[in-house]
Design a protein around this nucleic acid. Structure first.
Lengths: 221, 221
DNA sequence: TAGATTGTTAATCGATTAACAATC
DNA sequence: TAGATTGTTAATCGATTAACAATC
């Protein structure tokens, strides 16, 4: 029971910091470094080394005192822990600028994101190809999902990049075709079954923190 | 001293939640509601009402027992607190898909973001207009900033939507023309003077949390 | 008055940081 | 051996939640 309790209590802030370390580690690998210490990583990001050590510990990897962590081992451990060592088959709904940005950004491919097809409600976009992915009518989402299944894959994730007003109905459709996860960029809270994992990208939250700080700074802290 | 200490200790999570309430409140206003209670807001988002009350308290607004908060008053208080009641003049650098998405999204305009011009290093984009904003060569950023100043405005914010490798040099240029805030979408940590406020949009952090949860769920929690 | 709600103080919870032993 | 580093336990800090008084 201890182990399962521990898994449940994964500190989200640690998970969120792992991609930052991963980027640094891949740079180190490119430079040919074999080992790296928490001290070095921490310095790079202006953090305390003990925090880096705790963060890395959740992946299960361990280092060697006086030496540090093996770069290869650490990269592998972080990727496995995040599920970035396997492909995640996804459908993206909403082929506007934001959808295109995601389709064109190779960084997510490197993290295992494999967008099998894009969908939109706008007929002007049907049949267009964005970075190798065809845009289908949203109506055809069920058929396309069936096709993916026939190829022995499952559509595990839905990426929602439609306007706020359309997001809930799109999410419902994605749940219907059986996605297990939804990555939502629309500024609304989606109502989803409990067994679907769900993550919001809250751009306004980020903008709010920035402008609030800016204004407080302007007016003498 | 108490007051200034309090300002310094603003809980970031509360600031991040304010835009969510604001959206709900604007909906309520559209429906013609005059007052709204924390209980109702909390219900909507599956939170505790006491948390909503604490969050709203940081804006300085107060409600009436048994009644709730006046919708108008609350909207105004949140917008003023976040600095969304005034325009924030900005330059956006990187007119790719992500940059376009931001330029085309009217939500940020509603939050006061006023992108005066866009910049890119790619000559193919020079002179293009995106939602009314002209794309200039990055080289001309200083001249354009001077022009904005001649119009009696200051370029207060830089929005960075360039690839990771270009982000630091772009940030340096933005600091040079005098921005006080940087909103960074590139997946790198920027080295900036202490007096420039800075906010990262960490898309990988969000993706990491999602895929990690998905994989853990797959393997029996 | 009774019930619903705000606002505040205290308790709890979780994440960060400090301290330090273990080890190469 | 000395110094640098990991790994862990304890202390601190901050955010959330509980409890409850005040009020319309």
């Amino acid at each position: 029971m201890k182990a399962s309790a521990r898994i449940r209590n994964l500190p989200t802030p640690s998970v969120q910091r792992l991609p930052v370390y991963l980027r640094l580690l891949k740079e180190a690998r490119r430079r040919g470094d074999d080992v790296v210490s928490c001290t070095r990583i921490a310095e790079e990001f202006g953090q305390l080394s003990v925090q880096v050590r705790k963060d890395l510990a959740i992946t299960g990897v361990s280092g060697r005192p006086k030496v540090g962590y093996r770069v290869d081992e650490l990269i592998e451990a972080i990727e496995r822990f995040l599920g970035w060592n396997v492909k995640t088959t996804a459908f993206l709904v909403g082929a506007g600028n934001l959808g295109r940005a995601i389709l064109n950004y190779e960084g997510f491919v490197e993290h295992g994101l494999d967008v099998a097809a894009a969908f939109d409600a706008n007929p002007a976009l049907f049949g267009q190809t964005i970075n190798g992915r065809v845009v289908y009518p949203l109506d055809q989402i069920a058929e396309r999902a069936a096709e993916v299944r026939r190829q022995g894959r499952a559509v595990e994730m839905g990426v929602v990049t439609v306007p706020a007003r359309a997001a809930q109905s799109v999410a419902d459709k994605l749940v219907e075709i059986g996605v297990r996860a939804i990555w939502n960029y629309a500024p609304v809270r989606l109502d989803l079954p409990d067994d679907v994992v769900y993550e919001d990208v809250k751009l306004s939250a980020s903008f709010a923190v920035l402008t609030n700080r800016l204004r407080r700074r302007d007016s003498g802290q």
